[in-house]
């Protein structure tokens, strides 16, 4: 197990006042999952479900309110100095917007070298070789190193972002919506590239996405999130073939397919996502759930097994 997340919580205080906050957004409200070496674990859900906040906590850009994140068995919370440096070297990230994720004032060479130089004193020649090497891996010519980000298209920029993430030979890459800002015809190029480098460098991916078709195509295991909680998790095959949680079912049913004869039923789901500041009682999904019973409004459903490695939190879902 490479990455383990245990009962993770992140509450953002809201409201004015210098010392006291008047409330909290429960962005992540008790999430657990683990990712094995070489696996692609996907966190999927709609806006506000907390998936990006989890990614930011794994990347140590946010501090958890409660719970623990373990990498290789070591708790992130206790890391400092050399331990933190070592962690930073092993976990890299690729973000959604390739226009915002590359500093427009720096040359590609500097951008890609940044993580290397943060960790080692590298000679000029060695650095140059390494930059050109990773550019080659992502399919860009060595000449690209001397240009600025604005001289590239969106797809090429995302390749640069991937090259940068690869520069320090990480073990794990967090992919936050890596293709959703790209044009349709470019997405496949980037997705295929990500699959290739995963195989070549034995990478572990934690991917954050809202696009279910992408998740089904790309991941080996998936966790479905709703309003800060995991509602269902398991191997991609199991979750997509036999979704057990009504939310997963509704989500899958809602995706418009590029086939005029297989369109989503238009009554698949009603209502909208509640506020994370005042989430519904019991099961947070119950106001929108087509199968909700009285119990759902009062009792938080426990996390339970729904089959081999497949689990969920629903009063109505039964084990296989």
């Amino acid at each position: 197990m490479l990455l383990e997340v245990r009962d993770l919580k992140k509450h953002f205080p809201v409201g004015s006042g210098l010392l006291r906050a008047s409330g909290a957004v429960r962005a992540v409200d008790g999430v657990s999952f683990s990712v094995d070496v070489g696996e692609t674990f996907a966190l999927v859900g709609e806006s506000g479900c907390g998936k990006t906040t989890i990614a930011r906590m794994v990347l140590m850009l946010e501090r958890p309110t409660a719970g623990a994140i373990l990498f290789d068995g070591k708790d992130l919370a206790g890391m400092s100095g050399a331990g933190l440096k070592a962690y930073r070297r092993q976990v890299q990230a690729v973000f959604q917007d390739p226009y915002a994720s590359l500093n427009p004032r720096l040359r590609v060479r500097t951008i890609i070298a940044e993580p290397i130089l943060a960790h080692e004193r590298s000679g000029r020649a060695a650095l140059r070789r390494r930059v050109e090497e990773v550019l080659d891996v992502v399919g860009l010519p060595a000449a690209a190193a001397d240009l600025f980000p604005h001289e590239f298209s969106g797809g090429q920029r995302q390749r640069i972002a991937i090259a940068r993430a690869l520069a320090v030979n990480p073990r794990c890459i967090v992919l936050d919506e890596p293709i959703s800002a790209l044009d349709v015809s470019i997405r496949a190029q980037v997705l295929n590239l990500l699959a290739d480098i995963q195989e070549r460098f034995r990478l572990t991916y934690l991917i954050i996405a809202h696009d279910l078709a992408l998740v089904e195509h790309f991941s080996t295991r998936v966790g479905v999130m709703y309003l800060g909680n995991m509602v269902e998790a398991g191997p991609t095959d199991a979750v997509f073939d036999r979704p057990r949680h009504p939310y997963t079912q509704a989500l899958l049913a809602s995706v418009p397919r590029p086939d005029p004869d297989h369109q989503p039923p238009l009554d698949a789901i009603r209502g909208e996502i509640a506020s994370a500041m005042a989430p519904p009682s019991g099961c947070k999904f119950h106001p929108r759930c087509p199968r909700a019973i009285d119990r759902c409004a009062v009792e938080v459903p426990a996390w339970r097994s729904l089959g081999r490695d497949h689990a969920g939190a629903c009063h109505l879902a039964e084990g296989a």
Binding site: S185, R187, D211, H217, P258
Partner: peptide, 20 residues
């Protein structure tokens, strides 16, 4: 149509359109 993943298709290599 071939360049995007469709629901129900799993871990098939996508036919990327080269270039831009």
């Amino acid at each position: 149509l071939n360049a995007i993943p469709h629901l129900g298709q799993r871990r098939r290599r996508l036919h990327a359109i080269a270039g831009q």
